[in-house]
């Protein structure tokens, strides 16, 4: 349904994203994991065609959706996809709705734009969607303002907005980071149900490996603007080949939550201006050798998974 090949993104002369590849099909969930600043949101913005909004541009690669390359799609055609066939859910529900407008009209917009409905039909559609998301008294909610609702409720509204036009792909960029732990679980379960009921392709961006383990079919692990390992979730969790993935998985039993954001790994994430040469992970890697500081590793593909590490094969041999 959606496949990203070797995507690169630049702001002026800095290139915070390069060589990112993954693909999702209908009824499938792919997880994108990685520490803060690893380029997860940039990947999402690229797929949505919203990079110009933040001053960025695509420098290379292809984003293929339903057979057409989106990187060369004109803005007018892109607008039909956005909110229509590709929905976006953002991180902070507290600030993702227009505070000056009632909930109803904000959700109605989607059906009016993409399903060609008039005001009444769109409202009926909105109430129906809110109902399926188990939001009590949809009619009442439509008449409320965003500040009158809880974070969890607002995130459901945002999900409703993303779903209103019955999209094929849903991109959820850390949809639960700003929410209470109990609400987090509800939202994740909701998304999981939606994938199954509506045969959606879900791109779930998160930094929580346990969420990935529970809900995803495939994973892309990102580090310093690059995909460092990808594959089916079982393979990645059973036999992680990249030392960074291994470290991420090692963090799970310690009760990783939002505040502890992957602090289990020594060292700090490089920023765009000081991306290391060679393998970007080498300053923090326990297995690094001389070659790691000079040569960037290629992907070592094995079956349908791949890891960008000079010693991926060695790791295979050890775990086998």
């Amino acid at each position: 349904m959606l496949s990203v090949r070797d995507l690169g993104v630049a702001f002026g002369a800095v290139e915070p994203l390069s060589g990112v590849s993954f693909s999702v099909d209908k009824g499938e969930t792919i997880g994108i994991v990685g520490e803060s600043g690893s380029g997860k949101s940039l990947t999402a913005m690229s797929v949505m065609g919203l990079l110009p909004l933040i001053g960025g541009r695509i420098t290379g690669g292809r984003i293929v959706f339903d057979g057409q390359d989106l990187t060369s799609l004109p803005e007018r055609a892109y607008r039909k996809l956005r909110g229509g066939r590709i929905g976006l859910i953002t991180q902070n529900p507290m600030t993702s709705l227009d505070p000056l407008q009632k909930i109803g009209p904000q959700v109605d917009d989607v059906a009016r734009l993409h399903l060609g409905m008039n005001a009444n039909e769109a409202r009926a559609r909105t109430e129906e969607i809110l109902g399926t998301l188990r939001i009590p008294e949809p009619a009442l909610i439509c008449d409320r303002y965003p500040h009158q609702m809880s974070g969890g409720m607002k995130q459901r509204i945002v999900i409703a907005m993303a779903l209103a036009a019955d999209p094929d792909v849903l991109i959820a960029d850390e949809p639960t980071t700003a929410l209470d732990v109990t609400v987090q679980a509800q939202i994740i379960r909701l998304l999981d149900d939606l994938v199954k009921q509506r045969d959606l392709a879900l791109v779930l961006i998160t930094h929580d490996m346990s969420v990935v383990a529970q809900t995803c079919d495939k994973v892309v692990v990102m580090y310093a603007g690059r995909a460092v390992e990808y594959g089916p979730v079982e393979t990645i969790f059973d036999r992680p080949r990249h030392p960074y993935t291994q470290a991420l998985i090692a963090c799970i039993p310690r009760g990783l939550d939002d505040t502890a954001r992957l602090t289990g790994i020594e060292g700090t994430v490089p920023t765009v201006i000081n991306y290391p040469k060679g393998c970007p992970f080498h300053p923090r890697c326990t297995r690094a050798e001389a070659i790691c500081a000079t040569d960037p590793p290629d992907f070592s593909v094995e079956g349908d998974s791949a890891a960008a590490c000079h010693f991926a094969e060695v790791a295979d041999a050890q775990s086998a």
Partner: peptide, 9 residues
Amino acid sequence: FVTLLHAKG
């Protein structure tokens, strides 16, 4: 919220 407005199309 402007990002999401654009994301609505």
